[in-house]
């Protein structure tokens, strides 16, 4: 039977995480179908149809799916579940929100944040903030899996020519409604898919000071991240947080500035290819995972770095 990938998307854009989910889904061996739900999201379905290796795209285009409310979206996925042995979605805030409802309705244990599909029943997933990797075997007939996008290559976004098939809206009681959103628009690359990330910590001291991180990021074409302490202190918005409970990133280059390296932060970035740490405390734990460490005052080192990259 086929595998259903539930796309992570806005109404006009397919998120890259979906491409990683398609790669993960291919490990099960069946046909891969992609469900695109949203309102006015037909262009996203066309985009999904071009993903190499996708056999069919299901398009649920209805105002009910406009903001991805968990109750409506899970009802839709549950109604489609009969036709699939495996349901897969990226472990972003969208997937984490609706997918456990699907698992509960199907009476299945969800496998959260799989980093490897070992075989059709066996998965590897991080536990304890990534300080251990568990291999778990599922005895459920159907598999409900969220995957960690950074652990799977992106399927090519071009080359496929799947048919797009509309699916009707599923009636579900209107238990919740959308009121408003505050999305942080930025010209910088997306944190979860950037090649270079510069993150700042508590040491930056204020939102104004944090601008030195942003300036350096713009020079490098990098995304900006932060520790929890920097977010809690209001230097930057919540969606900048990297870590166990924020975003999981694995860029080619991660530069941690004024971040101590708590296990919860390391959980989100230690799979980066090259890690650079700038910290004035030579004992800071971040140096234990850094490929290049510089003991320095960040207020001198960061402007200097910006100048030298020039």
């Amino acid at each position: 039977m086929a595998v259903l990938v539930i796309a992570e998307n806005t109404n006009d854009e397919l998120k890259d995480a979906t491409l990683s989910a398609v790669t993960a889904a291919q490990a099960f061996g069946g046909d891969v179908h992609v469900l695109v739900a949203g309102s006015g999201c037909a262009p996203v379905a066309d985009q999904a149809a071009k993903i190499a290796g996708v056999a069919k795209v299901l398009l649920a285009d209805d105002p009910a799916y406009d903001h991805g409310l968990a109750e409506a979206l899970s009802a839709l996925v549950i109604s489609l579940a009969d036709g699939y042995d495996q349901l897969v979605t990226p472990a972003g805030t969208m997937g984490k929100n609706f997918m456990p409802r699907v698992a509960a309705a199907l009476d299945v244990a969800q496998v959260s944040e799989a980093v490897e599909i070992v075989d059709a029943n066996t998965f590897k997933r991080p536990i304890y903030a990534g300080n251990a990797i568990a291999t778990v075997k599922s005895s459920d007939a159907k598999k409900v899996v969220t995957i960690r996008p950074t652990s799977f290559d992106k399927a090519p976004g071009e080359g496929g020519s799947a048919a797009v098939e509309p699916v009707a809206k599923v009636d579900a009681p209107a238990l919740s409604s959308f009121i408003s959103q505050e999305l942080n628009e930025s010209d910088r690359p997306d944190l979860s898919s950037a090649d270079v990330i510069i993150s700042g910590g508590r040491a930056l001291g204020s939102a104004e000071n944090f601008e030195i991180i942003e300036r350096l990021a713009d020079k490098l074409g990098a995304a900006v991240g932060a520790s929890r302490a920097a977010v809690d202190a209001g230097f930057v918005p919540n969606d900048y947080q990297v870590g166990q409970t924020g975003k999981i990133v694995a860029p080619k280059l991660y530069i941690a500035v004024g971040i101590s390296g708590a296990i919860q932060h390391l959980a989100g970035m230690k799979d980066s290819k090259i890690i650079v740490a700038i910290n004035k405390d030579e004992e800071a734990p971040i140096f234990q995972v850094a490929d290049y460490g510089l003991v320095a005052d960040l207020f001198e080192a960061v402007p200097e770095l910006e100048k030298q990259i020039g």
Binding site: T122, V136, S139, Y292
Partner: peptide, 19 residues
Amino acid sequence: RLSTERVEEPPERQAGVMV
């Protein structure tokens, strides 16, 4: 529903250098 077959340490990062 899930049985834990094995738990292992994550891959260690190679020690880096101080510049």
